[in-house]
């Protein structure tokens, strides 16, 4: 079976502007592979094709790309899932600057992540010398939050992040923000909320849920953002 691809190509050293390049791959009938496997086979044909990948099993979050218009991880997206449209169109994640081909510059994404202080902050007196224990109930609050692998599929599918990537934290950053806001061991809740309490950081989320529909880990950033909004509201009213 011949599978056709259309792949976004751009090498700023050589190309004046990006272009879409057609490529095809012979996939044995009745077999399947992941989009990443296909990209690796295509790279064997044309070594100039660039993309990021590492663990190839949906854990590292390196190979987020836009496949047929939807963000996802190439390594856990089967070809058979995206074949229905005839040609598989692969582009870099939208909204962030392209370094080359499918490789994007994620600096803006990481800057927003840094802003929410993604680490435990505790009173100097509080952390015990040994284990820092939580009850099973307290630990349960972190489920659905801690699993984020920072692949940026969600933030780069969010129009609010496209238009204001320097001011709006974005779904990935806000999911992490809520993960620390709700952590029983964290004592900087007030300070964290104060840092988010403006018209852009959280409130640019209008709940369109693109982030939820693309998250390869099945997480729900919109729900976490709703919880942050409630916390900000409770503090203000």
């Amino acid at each position: 079976m011949n599978v056709n691809f259309s792949i976004y190509r751009y090498n700023p050293d050589v190309d004046n502007k990006p272009y879409m390049q057609d490529a095809s791959l012979d996939v044995p009938e009745g077999s399947d592979m992941m989009v990443l496997d296909a990209l690796i086979l295509l790279k064997e044909k044309d070594a100039t094709l660039s993309f990021r990948r590492s663990c190839r099993e949906g854990v590292c979050g390196s190979d987020g790309v836009n496949i047929n218009g939807k963000n996802g991880l190439a390594c856990i997206t089967p070809l058979s899932d995206v074949l229905s449209k005839g040609k598989i169109v692969i582009r870099p994640l939208p909204g962030l600057p392209v370094i080359r081909d499918l490789v994007i510059d994620m600096a803006q994404f990481y800057t927003q992540y840094e802003k929410i202080k993604p680490y435990l902050i505790t009173d100097a007196s509080k952390p015990p010398a040994g284990e820092f224990k939580q009850s099973p109930e307290e630990r349960k609050h972190l489920d659905g939050l801690y699993e984020c692998i920072l692949c940026a599929c969600c933030s780069t599918s969010c129009p609010s992040f496209w238009w204001n990537p320097e001011k709006f934290i974005g779904p990935a950053g806000l999911l992490a923000a809520y993960r620390f806001l709700i952590d029983s061991r964290d004592s900087a809740t007030e300070e964290r909320l104060s840092n988010l309490d403006d018209a852009f950081s959280v409130f640019r989320c209008h709940g369109i849920m693109n982030c939820v529909s693309v998250c390869p880990k099945g997480l729900n950033p919109t729900k976490a953002i709703g919880k942050i909004k409630s916390m900000l509201l409770q503090r203000a009213i």
Binding site: D197, A199, F200, S201, F203, L232, L233
Partner: peptide
């Protein structure tokens, strides 16, 4: 904007 903060705008 009209509100004094994001929360104010939201409400």
């Amino acid at each position: 904007t009209f509100g004094r903060s994001g929360v104010h705008d939201y409400i």
